[in-house]
């Protein structure tokens, strides 16, 4: 359900594997996030992502458990890259399966908002003008706040 991966992540293969696992679901939503070419300091040549095991996996598993509690999902998958990545490479893959599409859409959206703001990752982009450590944008926090309920993240 949750995976950190140091090697290449292919969204097509990940989706195929997910579909094979949940062939009885009426709706599958998948999202893949990719490394942007343009960063704060110009063209990004490398994105470096650090995780802290087991805290990173623990947090991702808790978010996945919340998604399973809040929406009637058949299954979900979250695969996140760590290490060095080039522009255009897939950094994250999220897929959700449910009987109906609305639940699958919302759960995938919820999981991505968690990953963008709360997940235990540190992210550095290398550009021609130097290295920059990246923090979540204000918009990322606003997006995540949409899901707030008492006792939730």
């Amino acid at each position: 359900m949750i995976e950190l991966r140091e090697t290449g992540l292919c969204a097509c293969e990940a989706l195929q594997a997910f579909e094979a696992r949940v062939d009885d679901a009426g709706a599958i939503v998948s999202f893949s996030g990719r490394v942007r070419r343009g960063g704060n300091g110009g063209d990004v040549t490398c994105l470096h992502l650090q995780a802290y095991s087991p805290l990173t996996e623990r947090g991702m598993t808790a978010a996945a458990d919340q998604a399973m509690d809040r929406w009637p999902l058949t299954a979900l998958s979250v695969i996140h890259r760590i290490g060095d990545m080039a522009p255009g490479e897939t950094i994250v893959f999220v897929a959700t399966a449910a009987r109906h599409r609305r639940d699958a859409f919302e759960a995938a959206d919820f999981l991505m908002d968690y990953l963008k703001t709360e997940a235990v990752f540190w992210k550095k982009e290398t550009t021609p003008s130097g290295d920059n450590w990246i923090e979540p944008r204000a918009q990322d926090y606003q997006d995540q706040a949409r899901w707030a309920r008492n006792g939730d993240i």
């Binding site: 996030g33 805290l55 709360e118 540190w122 450590w133 923090e135 979540p136 990322d140």
Partner: peptide, 26 residues
């Protein structure tokens, strides 16, 4: 030892101790 603590928190010579700046998200 893989749990974020409230400080000050005791440390010993057998502990795993990690220093965590604000996270950047994925």
């Amino acid at each position: 030892n893989d749990d974020i603590v409230s400080e000050p928190h005791p440390v010993s010579d057998q502990d795993r101790i990690a220093f965590l700046p604000p996270v950047g998200g994925g």
